[in-house]
Simulated scan of single mutants.
Amino acid sequence: MTAITLTPPIGRRAALAALSAHLLVALIALVGIGGATRVMEAGLACPDWPLCYGSLLPGRQMNLQVFLEWFHRLDAFVVGMGLLVQAALSTWWRRELPRAVPWLSGLALLLVAVQGGLGALTVTLLLPFSVVTAHLVTALLLVALLSACTQVLLEPSTSAKPPQASRFSLDRLWPGLVGVVALLALGQCLLGGLMATQWAAGRCLSSGEGCGWLFAHRLGARPVAAAVLVTAAWGLWRWQAERVLAALAALAVIAQVALGVMSLRLTLAVPAVTVAHQLMAAFLVAVLAAWFSRSLLEPVRLEVSRG
């Protein structure tokens, strides 16, 4: 069997990994703040863009709704500047980094620019559901991309290639299976976003309108949750290096389903539960994207190394 030497990320790569991880946390928080802004109907609390009431800090107009919209923009600006720094550093240090990092960082910077433009359109066009949905979709894609980039940076380097699995073994199919599950979960999140931006759940519960979106979201939740749980169970049993991510995925999808059921039983009357449901969706996307990256990049698999 080929000998493999693992070394943890050091120096510039470790610094960039720390930056990427912090930006990922800030981005997930940004999705949660965006959810709170929508639930509290604060999307137009600042009537202009990029300023708020013509100033950087609207002190006189400040209330909960204005604060949510203002802080949402502030967090987005910080994340955007951080991604700009990450893209610049990953390009400058590209010889010391995995080949994928500069490309992932550059794509993340492009997406955050698109995200900023969509954010401006949500205000100037008075919250059209298509733009609001695209805004949320871009945010979740950013979460997935940055999570994958972080995982690539954190992956230990190797001095030799790991043993190759047989052509038709599960070792070759496994990354694709994890990727399919991640795409299914992302699709379910996007369906939930479409439902939320049209206020379909609230309209269905109050007047019986828009129930088709709610039914579709609930119908899709069961097979997607089952797919995540089955894949997580298989990962916990077979792949030692992926057990933490598999466990996190299982816990996240269970929490997500529980929050969804709770929000409906409370008839969306508790904003904290509804916001937590969206926040957990972003966390689940981040975990699955990291898991997919690990399944592609993990240099030593328990079963292969025994072979």
Score class of each variant (00 low, 15 high):
Leu30Thr: 07
Ile33Tyr: 00
Gly34Asp: 06
Gly35Val: 13
Thr37Pro: 04
Val39Arg: 08
Met40Cys: 01
Gly43Ala: 08
Leu44Asn: 04
Ala45Arg: 02
Cys46Ala: 09
Asp48Gly: 06
Trp49Pro: 03
Leu51Thr: 12
Cys52Ile: 14
Tyr53Trp: 11
Tyr53Cys: 05
Gly54Gln: 09
Gly54Leu: 10
Leu56Met: 10
Leu56Arg: 04
Pro58Trp: 11
Arg60Asp: 08
Arg60Glu: 10
Arg60Pro: 06
Gln61Ser: 12
Met62Glu: 00
Asn63Cys: 02
Leu64Trp: 05
Gln65Ser: 09
Phe67Pro: 06
Phe67Arg: 05
Glu69Ile: 02
Trp70His: 14
Arg73Ala: 04
Leu74Val: 15
Asp75Leu: 15
Ala76Cys: 05
Phe77Ile: 08
Val79Lys: 00
Gly82Tyr: 13
Gly82Phe: 05
Leu84Val: 15
Leu84Ile: 15
Val85Thr: 10
Gln86Asn: 11
Leu89Phe: 08
Thr91Phe: 14
Arg94Asn: 05
Arg94Phe: 14
Arg94Leu: 14
Arg95Val: 05
Leu97Phe: 08
Pro98Phe: 00
Arg99His: 06
Ala100His: 03
Val101Ile: 15
Trp103Leu: 15
Leu104Asn: 06
Leu107Cys: 11
Ala108Lys: 04
Leu110Ile: 06
Leu110Glu: 03
Val112Gln: 07
Ala113Asn: 00
Val114His: 01
Val114Met: 10
Gln115Glu: 04
Gln115Thr: 01
Gly117Asn: 03
Leu118Met: 13
Gly119Cys: 03
Leu121Trp: 10
Val123Leu: 11
Thr124Glu: 13
Pro128Gln: 09
Pro128Glu: 13
Phe129Ile: 09
Phe129Asp: 13
Val131Lys: 03
Thr133Asn: 13
Thr133Asp: 10
Leu136Met: 15
Val137Lys: 00
Val137Ile: 15
Thr138Asp: 15
Thr138Arg: 04
Thr138Met: 11
Ala139Thr: 03
Ala139Asn: 03
Leu140Gln: 05
Leu140Asp: 02
Leu140His: 04
Leu142Ser: 05
Leu142Thr: 01
Leu145Pro: 00
Ser147Trp: 07
Ala148Glu: 02
Ala148Asn: 01
Thr150Ser: 09
Val152Phe: 01
Val152Asp: 00
Leu154Trp: 11
Glu155Asn: 14
Ser159Tyr: 00
Ser159Asp: 14
Ala160Leu: 08
Pro163Glu: 09
